[in-house]
Design a binder for these strands. Structure first.
Lengths: 110, 110
DNA sequence: CAAATATATCAATTAATCATGATATATGGA
DNA sequence: TCCATATATCATGATTAATTGATATATTTG
């Protein structure tokens, strides 16, 4: 991922509602959630949620498919992946043990 | 890491200069860099850089030690690690292959 | 085609953030 | 103690972002 895209992703995630949305979609996994249900679960108004979903989408962190009247949203794991790659690029100045804890944190037990 | 701290870290990284600073400090590793040299390398004025270093510090992404007249800054790998842990908490809805690419991206060759 | 449901867009107000000039604090050396 | 160097803080104007009410678009159902 390039810098522009990384900045977009970080800005997208730096707002509470959007961070909540993203984590919710990460947790539900493959099945995703329709926009309306995301708004309900998080107690956010319809147009605010729509705008926030658009920002997350633009940032490459989520994607959606229409499903009848609803639109179902999913987390884009590739988005996080690319962001992390950019953050840790050429990391550690030759000291592997520096980034070890970061990697350890990510071996999720899913 | 909790939500408040994660939001601080994401907001801190969502600004170009601060993202540059953090990546620079990740890349130089253990030796770190004095504030002045960070500013020089990135072409950022003294007071702007100072404010940005304070924001990154407050967010837990970097730390510093005084060294005579200078103050030397270092990346906090634990900060990234905690942030990732929070982002991916309870991830994938039972589908391990979803977060695999994220992990793969992070096995840095340092 | 009309009504209902689900989501998106628009315009405007409010709020937060950024860079900057000026100045203050801290450290080291003469 | 006085000066120079390195960094931090303060106040302000300018840009940017967030929320909201109103409205528009798309889809399904009758």
């Amino acid at each position: 991922m390039d810098k522009k895209q990384s900045l977009d992703a970080l800005a997208a995630l730096s707002q509470e509602t959007r961070l909540d949305v993203f984590r919710l979609l990460v947790q539900v996994g493959r099945q995703g959630l329709p926009a309306g249900e995301i708004g309900e679960r998080l107690g956010v108004r319809q147009n605010t949620m729509s705008a926030n979903l658009a920002i997350l989408t633009q940032a490459g962190l989520i994607h959606s498919v229409r499903e009848g009247r609803s639109i179902r949203y999913f987390a884009n794991m590739d988005g996080v992946s690319g962001l992390l790659g950019f953050l840790m690029e050429n990391c550690c100045g030759g000291a592997p043990e520096l980034c070890q804890p970061v990697i350890a944190k990510l071996t999720c037990a899913c």
